Amino acid sequence: MDMWDAENTGNAEAIEAAVAQAVHDCRATMLESSYRKYSEDGGVTGFAILAESHICVNTWHEERMVAIDVFFCGSLDPYASITALRDVFRPSRIDISEHKRLLGTRITHPNIVEAL
């Protein structure tokens, strides 16, 4: 998801707390996380490595813009992360795009691939 006219884009601690809440809300399992603020007026890059994959946040403080990737394996609902992330950034606009991957591989769906 992309967030525009966002707040807290330079606050690594607030972003880390929001991602932790998003992980909890999605019922995912946090394995580790790291957040880095690039300069006093710079943006933040952070990630949460999950047992089910990851969440990555990149902010552009000077642009008040946020790009967030929520990537899950299995049946977890990535949309459950939106509230915690929206609450910390309070954007005026959110754009969400969904990309489904590995839907037609021999390992995940052998019958579908053979039919194609």
Rank of each mutant, 00 (worst) to 15 (best):
P78K: 13
G74Q: 07
I112N: 07
P78S: 08
S53W: 03
E16F: 04
E63Y: 13
A14P: 06
R27S: 08
Y79F: 14
Q21D: 15
N8M: 15
I15P: 12
C73P: 00
G42A: 12
D5Q: 11
S97G: 07
A67Y: 13
G42R: 05
M30G: 00
R101I: 13
I68K: 06
L76D: 08
D5I: 01
E16P: 04
L85C: 10
V88Y: 14
H61Q: 10
N11K: 14
S97M: 11
S92Q: 12
C56K: 03
A28Y: 05
G104Q: 03
G74H: 09
H24Y: 00
H54Q: 08
A14S: 14
A28T: 01
L31M: 06
I96V: 15
S81Q: 10
E62V: 01
N8Q: 13
R86G: 00
S33H: 11
D77W: 13
C56R: 03
I49A: 00
E98R: 15
I94M: 15
E98W: 11
D95G: 06
A22Y: 09
E98D: 07
A12Q: 15
N58S: 08
I112P: 03
T59E: 05
N11L: 11
N58P: 02
N11G: 06
C56F: 14
R64A: 12
A18P: 11
R64L: 08
V88Q: 12
V57Q: 01
G42Q: 09
S75F: 13
E32Q: 01
G10V: 02
F71V: 11
F71M: 10
G42S: 09
G74R: 06
L50W: 01
R64N: 14
N111R: 10
V70L: 12
C26F: 02
G42P: 10
I82C: 11
D25T: 00
A20I: 00
P110S: 07
G104N: 10
L102R: 06
C73V: 02
F71T: 02
F71W: 12
H99S: 04
C26A: 14
N58C: 14
P78I: 09
T45K: 02
E114F: 07
L103S: 04
Q21G: 08
A20P: 06
G104M: 11
